[in-house]
C-alpha cells in the first residue's frame, strides 16, 4: 500500500542572486512499513524535498511551485502551509528528525516539555499520562534513568542522547511516516550504528514507514529497501537497494559507490572521489547538471536537455549514456 506519493515536486528559492531550483520535478513514493533512502551530496535538494512535503519551507524566499504530495489519499499541498490540516499531519502523521541534534532541540525547554507538547497537541493526553508516556518513550530509545532525566534540558545530554530524544519525540504520536534528515551525520560512527539500528527496530515495531535522507550510501545500504539518488534538485536514479548497489546505472551513482568502502570487495580497491564540485544551483543550464563532472559524457549530453527518468533494467535512470557498456 502506498503511503506517500510525491509527484513532480518543484521548490524554488527566489534569492537576490537569482532563482535557485532546489527541487526541480522530484517524484518518489514510499509504502507502508517501508524504509526508503534518499541519497545525494550536500546541497542537492534532498532536505528541501522533505521539508517541502510538510510545507516547512521558509517563505519567502522558498516557494513550492508545483507538484503533489499525496498522503492518505489527500494532496497535502492543497492545504495552507500553517493551517489546521497541515498542523495535524506534522508530528501527528508525519514526523521528522533533523540533522543537528545539538541545535534541533530547544535549549530553553526541558525534554519533557518538548515531548509533552506533542502528546497534548495530537493525542490530547493529560499531564500525568504525558509524563508516563514520555518516560516510556525515552526508555525505549535507550535513555538510561529516563524517569530522572526527563526534566533535564538538552544541554545536559550528549549528542547521541539528544538524537535519541529527537527520535523519541518524533515517534511519540505514532506517526505513519518518519522522515529522518541526516539523522546520524553529526554523531560518531559507533553512535551512528546504534541510532540506525534503534530506528530500524522502532519503525518495525510501530509499523512506521521511514525515509532516511543521507549523503552516505553506506548508511542506507544496510537499512533501506529502496533508494533514490538525487543530484542538483532531481532524482537521477532509483531502484531497490540491491540493484543500486550491485548494478548502478547513473554515472553519479557509480561515482558515489566508488567512494564508499565495502567489506565484501576485493582488497586494495582504491576509493575514488568524484571529480569536481557539486554545481551551483543558481541559474542552471538546461543540460544535465552532472555533465561537467561526468566521465562518461557523450555529445548528446551537451546538446539535449537533462533527460527524464526512464526504466533501465529494474531501475529508473536519468541518463543518455548506457553506462553498462562503458563501465570498466
Amino acid at each position: 500500500m502506498t503511503l506517500l506519493t510525491v509527484e513532480n515536486l518543484k521548490t524554488y528559492f527566489h534569492t537576490d542572486f537569482g532563482l535557485v531550483k532546489a527541487v526541480d520535478g522530484v517524484s518518489y513514493e514510499i509504502n507502508e512499513g517501508e524504509i526508503v533512502g534518499i541519497v545525494g551530496e550536500s546541497g542537492c535538494g534532498k532536505s528541501v524535498t522533505q521539508l517541502s512535503t510538510l510545507q516547512l519551507i521558509t517563505s519567502p524566499p522558498g516557494m513550492i511551485e508545483d507538484g503533489k504530495v499525496i498522503f492518505d489519499g489527500r494532496n497535502l499541498l492543497d492545504y495552507p502551509a500553517n493551517g489546521p490540516e497541515m498542523r495535524s499531519i506534522r508530528g501527528g502523521k508525519i514526523a521528522m528528525i533533523f540533522q543537528e541534534p545539538m541545535t534541533s532541540l530547544n535549549p530553553t525547554l526541558s525534554v519533557f516539555q518538548q515531548i509533552s507538547e506533542m502528546l497534548s497537541l495530537h493525542l490530547q493526553m493529560d499531564k500525568e499520562t504525558q509524563r508516563k508516556r514520555a518516560i516510556e518513550l525515552l526508555t525505549q530509545v535507550g535513555i538510561p534513568d529516563a524517569k530522572r532525566r526527563i526534566d533535564d534540558y538538552p544541554h545536559q545530554f550528549s549528542g547521541g542522547m539528544r538524537q535519541r530524544v529527537m527520535i523519541a519525540m518524533a515517534l511519540s504520536c505514532n506517526p505513519k511516516l518518519l522522515i529522518a534528515d541526516e539523522p546520524t551525520t553529526a554523531v560518531d560512527v559507533t553512535t551512528q550504528a546504534q541510532l540506525l539500528l534503534l530506528m530500524q527496530n522502532l519503525v518495525r515495531q510501530y509499523h512506521t514507514s521511514l525515509i532516511i535522507v543521507t549523503h552516505n550510501l553506506g548508511v542506507v545500504a544496510r537499512y533501506a529497501q529502496r533508494i533514490y539518488v538525487m543530484y542538483a534538485g532531481r532524482i537521477v536514479e532509483s531502484g531497490s537497494c540491491d540493484d543500486i548497489f550491485n548494478q548502478p546505472k547513473h554515472p553519479y551513482t557509480i561515482g558515489l559507490l566508488k567512494c564508499v568502502p565495502r567489506l565484501d570487495e576485493e582488497e586494495d580497491r582504491r576509493l575514488v572521489p568524484i571529480e569536481g564540485l557539486p554545481p551551483n544551483l543558481i541559474n542552471m543550464p538546461p543540460t544535465c547538471a552532472f555533465l561537467p563532472r561526468c566521465p562518461y559524457k557523450i555529445d548528446r549530453c551537451r546538446e539535449e536537455p537533462w533527460p527524464a527518468l526512464k526504466p533501465v533494467g529494474n531501475q529508473q535512470v536519468a541518463c543518455y549514456v548506457d553506462t553498462k557498456l562503458t563501465v570498466q
Binding site: 510538510l54 495535524s88 506534522r90 508530528g91 541545535t103 530547544n106 535549549p107 507538547e117 497537541l121
Partner: peptide, 19 residues
C-alpha cells in the same frame, strides 16, 4: 533549527512564537 523542529511538530504559530 529548533524552531523548524517546533514547526515540524505541528504547533500553531502562536505557540511557536511564544513558547
Amino acid at each position: 533549527d529548533y524552531i523548524r523542529t517546533a514547526w515540524s511538530k505541528g504547533l500553531r504559530e502562536r505557540a511557536i512564537v511564544i513558547k
